[in-house]
Write a protein that binds this DNA or RNA. Structure first.
Length: 212
DNA sequence: ATTTAGATCCTCT
DNA sequence: GAGGATCTAAATG
């Protein structure tokens, strides 16, 4: 059954399993004016709970910001960083188990014109190539934090065609996470030019998993 | 081609 | 008061 919204049980698994499982799925966003935007997920990262030093929920730090991570699987966790960027996560595992998958890149599929407007004239390959870029291209911000992806009218995920090949590397931007910095919890579709760090060339298996 | 700096502000200590 | 799950433009080799 193609193009069907993913239900709660799809998300009720550990982040390390959901992250690769989300590759190929379609992220759908309906704007206030009714415009439908979507893209195929090509890059994800798993944040695997209270033991994960790179996670906002490390050491059971429960704060107003990361509260959505403790909500039920299928909840959106949208956070603000670096003074100007939003990033979008899919909460998973179970209620009160703070695991989540960061969506790092999608391949634009529907609503390209609107995305170009939202992103201000970058080349199409760069529209959604990176966690903050895709949030800007899909108009995802704090208004969608805590949204329930299983019944929201504005944001959800549909089934899609799975990648033929998936690669794993350490996560990006978490160098200070000690041993957790080295865990291979980043997943992407091999060969996709829409993966971050590729400069728009096909993502491969060379060192660090980035195309040279 | 690679490196650096600046933007810019919310969150937690 | 410090630093951040980033991105971009500008400077440098």
């Amino acid at each position: 059954m193609p193009d069907q919204r993913l239900a709660r049980d799809f998300f009720a698994i550990p982040a390390a399993e959901l992250a690769p499982a989300l590759l190929g799925m379609r992220l759908v966003r309906i704007l206030e004016n009714g415009t439908r935007l979507s893209g195929r997920i090509v890059e994800t990262e798993a944040y695997v709970g209270v033991k994960d030093r790179a996670s906002h929920a490390f050491n059971s730090r429960r704060t107003p910001r990361n509260e959505p991570m403790y909500a039920c699987p299928g909840t959106a966790y949208v956070y603000f960083t670096y003074g100007m960027h939003w990033c979008f996560n899919v909460v998973c595992a179970a209620i009160d188990i703070p695991e989540a998958v960061l969506i790092r890149a999608v391949q634009p599929y529907e609503g390209l014109d609107e995305m170009r407007t939202l992103r201000g004239g970058v080349r199409d390959l760069d529209l959604c190539r990176g966690p903050a870029r895709l949030c800007k291209a899909l108009a995802i911000d704090s208004a969608l934090n805590s949204a329930d992806l299983t019944n929201s009218e504005l944001l959800w995920i549909e089934s899609g065609q799975r990648p033929t090949k998936i690669a794993q590397t350490p996560r990006i931007g978490v160098a200070n996470a000690g041993p957790w910095a080295r865990r291979r919890l980043r997943f992407f579709e091999v060969g996709s030019p829409f993966v971050s760090g590729t400069k728009g060339k096909p993502a491969g298996l060379s060192r660090r998993g980035l195309a040279r």
